[in-house]
Computed example of a mutant assay.
Amino acid sequence: MAHYSGDYASATTGGQVVYESRLELARLLLADFDPPVCGIYAQPLRMVARIDGKVRSHVPDFLAP
């Protein structure tokens, strides 16, 4: 399976933002041209929660405040 990862030169951040797929790149483009977005962070944190007695974790692709 081919991977389409790379760096995107973001106007919002003034730097590079890493993406791992074409879908992530498409969402990144939308966020970059959305006026209320003031920053874009790739894989910014790891969320951990206990659900039904099991520990679950997730790393979101982007954070765009």
Rank of each mutant, 00 (worst) to 15 (best):
A2C: 00
A2G: 00
A2Q: 10
A2W: 08
H3A: 14
H3W: 09
Y4K: 09
S5Q: 12
G6P: 01
G6L: 05
D7S: 06
D7F: 10
D7T: 00
Y8M: 03
Y8T: 02
Y8C: 03
A9R: 13
A9K: 10
S10W: 03
S10H: 05
S10Q: 04
S10N: 05
S10G: 05
S10A: 04
A11D: 13
A11W: 08
A11E: 14
T12R: 09
T12V: 13
T13L: 03
T13M: 04
G14I: 04
G14F: 09
G14L: 08
G15Q: 06
G15N: 06
Q16M: 11
Q16D: 09
Q16V: 12
Q16A: 13
Q16N: 11
V17H: 02
V17N: 02
V17M: 01
V17Q: 01
V18S: 07
V18K: 05
V18Q: 10
Y19A: 02
Y19L: 03
Y19W: 04
Y19N: 02
Y19V: 03
E20D: 11
E20F: 03
E20W: 04
S21K: 03
S21P: 01
R22A: 08
R22V: 08
L23M: 07
L23R: 10
L23W: 08
E24H: 03
E24L: 03
L25A: 08
L25G: 02
L25F: 07
L25K: 05
L25T: 02
A26K: 10
R27P: 00
R27N: 13
L28P: 01
L28N: 03
L29Q: 15
L29E: 15
L30K: 12
L30I: 14
L30T: 14
L30W: 12
A31G: 06
D32S: 09
D32N: 11
F33Q: 15
F33I: 14
P35R: 13
P35K: 11
P35C: 07
P35F: 06
P36V: 05
V37Q: 06
V37P: 04
C38H: 14
G39F: 12
G39N: 09
G39A: 15
G39P: 00
Y41F: 14
Y41R: 15
Y41N: 01
Y41D: 10
A42V: 00
A42M: 01
A42Y: 09
A42H: 12
Q43E: 11
Q43T: 05
Q43N: 09
Q43W: 09
Q43F: 07
P44M: 07
P44S: 08
P44T: 07
P44L: 08
L45W: 11
R46N: 05
M47L: 15
M47D: 03
V48D: 05
V48L: 07
V48Y: 01
A49T: 11
A49S: 12
A49F: 09
A49H: 10
A49Q: 12
R50G: 02
R50N: 12
I51M: 07
D52I: 00
G53N: 06
G53D: 05
G53Y: 06
G53A: 06
G53C: 04
K54R: 14
V55K: 02
V55P: 00
R56D: 00
R56Q: 11
R56W: 13
R56S: 01
S57M: 07
S57N: 12
H58G: 00
H58E: 02
H58F: 15
V59D: 01
V59N: 04
V59E: 10
V59A: 08
D61A: 15
F62A: 06
F62H: 07
F62S: 08
L63Y: 15
L63F: 15
L63M: 14
L63G: 15
